[in-house]
Amino acid sequence: MFTGIVEELGEIVAVENLGDASRFQVRGPVVTEGARHGDSIAVNGVCLTVVDTGDGGFSADVMAETLDRSSLGALAVGSRVNLERPMALGGRLGGHLVQGHVDGTGTLIERKLSEHWEIVKISLPSELGRYVVEKGSITVDGISLTVVDAGPDYFTVSLIPTTLALTTLGVKQPGDPVNLEVDVLAKYVERLLAHGGTDQDKKAIE
């Protein structure tokens, strides 16, 4: 489980085609400190398993399913990526509960400059629209963000200088793809109600 608080802006240093998968070599000295084979690291919001570590980086295998369903398939040598280690039990939940399971991809539509921040508009797959609400949480490329405006096929977020400086959203341009993970609590609530939750359950939700 992650929190959507990016620890480090890493870089893809090598991509090996394995046929039905790819092996990424990622530079990230902060997140690899103490990391071992089998540990998890989120790369642009996708939970990947560490294969090996060394020289301030790590390698991870990415299956074809993940490449097809996320923006990781568009990564190449030199691509910058958001990196985060799993939250330690008892640690602070600085963002919101993030699983590292991408629900879909969106596209950055536009950026609007303000004096101290930017408003970014991102397209939203229609099947995810019901999970995104104004002032709710959403994960974009592994970054926990608060929704400013929610439309049927888009949403906007406000980016502070720290987010712009320390994550990939500082350099993404209109047309660039992003990974999206909606709030898992919304999905659990929907399933509970769809399967005839008890009156007590419904009152608790209300």
Rank of each mutant, 00 (worst) to 15 (best):
H96L: 03
G28I: 07
S71T: 10
L145V: 10
G38K: 01
E115G: 13
T167S: 05
R69K: 10
G10N: 09
K135E: 13
P161Y: 07
H195Y: 13
G106E: 00
E11L: 02
A74H: 10
K121P: 01
K112S: 11
V157R: 06
T139R: 00
L169Q: 05
G54Q: 14
T3F: 09
L159E: 01
G100S: 08
A64L: 09
I5Y: 02
R191H: 13
V77N: 07
M87V: 15
S22N: 02
V182S: 11
L128W: 01
E115C: 01
R130P: 00
V81Q: 06
T49F: 03
H37M: 06
T146Q: 06
I5G: 10
G136W: 09
S70D: 02
K187Q: 04
D103V: 13
G28N: 07
A194L: 14
K135R: 12
R92A: 14
D141E: 14
R111E: 04
Q25R: 13
E16V: 11
V81S: 07
W117K: 08
G95T: 10
R85K: 12
Q25D: 06
H195C: 11
A35T: 13
D149K: 15
P174Y: 04
R80F: 01
Q173M: 12
V46Q: 01
S70C: 12
N82W: 00
E190A: 12
A14F: 01
L169C: 05
V157Y: 04
P86C: 05
L67H: 08
K172N: 04
G106K: 07
E118K: 11
G19N: 06
E65R: 06
V15S: 05
H96N: 07
V148K: 08
P29T: 08
D153W: 03
G73Y: 03
A88I: 03
S22R: 12
A186T: 13
R36P: 01
V140R: 04
I160Q: 06
L97S: 02
P125V: 03
G95F: 10
N44S: 11
N44C: 11
Q25Y: 14
V178E: 00
E33H: 10
A194S: 15
I41R: 00
L166W: 02
T168G: 11
D103Y: 12
M1E: 08
S144V: 10
I119W: 09
N82H: 03
Y154H: 14
E110F: 01
A21K: 03
D176M: 09
G73Q: 06
E110M: 07
T156C: 05
L72H: 09
L185F: 13
R27E: 12
T107D: 04
S137W: 10
